Simulated assay, not measured.
Amino acid sequence: MSDTERKNSPGAQARDKAARDKATPAASKSARRDGAKKEADSPQGLARKVQELKEFFEEAKVELKKITWPSRKEAQATSIAVLVLTVVMAVFLGLTDMSLSKIVELLLS
């Protein structure tokens, strides 16, 4: 790989950018942050944010219409299945814990 290829590789570009960001004084970073904040506080920035929020809710509404909700019968069936599995696992883990406790107690006494 030649020096030119090495300098233009994505990894080298990322390292160069990281080095530039590190070398950037904190004052200029805060100035950029303040500039972005002022832009958001400006009437145009505020209007743009309101428009983005409106678009977000419109898209969310469209996505919610695509959902196929389970029927009441399906919801009850899956809830019962979860409860039964939970009880079975609780009993299994309780018995396992009790038997292992007895084994440890016998070994230590």
Rank of each mutant, 00 (worst) to 15 (best):
S2N: 14
T96D: 05
I67E: 01
L83D: 09
E58Q: 10
E5N: 12
Q13A: 11
I80C: 04
N8K: 12
S9Y: 02
K17D: 04
S71K: 11
R15E: 10
D34L: 13
L100C: 03
T96R: 14
G94E: 04
F57N: 07
S2I: 05
Q13P: 00
Q44I: 05
L107P: 00
Q76M: 15
A14Y: 02
P70R: 05
V91R: 11
K73D: 10
Q13V: 08
P25V: 06
A12S: 14
P25I: 06
L46H: 09
A23K: 11
F56S: 02
V91E: 07
S79T: 11
R15K: 13
D34W: 04
K61V: 02
E5R: 13
P10W: 01
S101Y: 08
K38P: 00
R15P: 00
Q51M: 07
E5V: 06
D34K: 15
V62Y: 00
Q51S: 04
F92M: 15
E39L: 10
V62T: 09
K7D: 03
A36T: 03
K102G: 04
S99L: 12
F57A: 05
V88D: 05
L108N: 12
M98K: 14
K17N: 07
A75C: 07
A60T: 04
D3F: 06
T4K: 14
G45M: 03
L93W: 10
L46S: 11
V62R: 03
L107Y: 06
S109Y: 09
N8C: 04
D41K: 15
K66P: 01
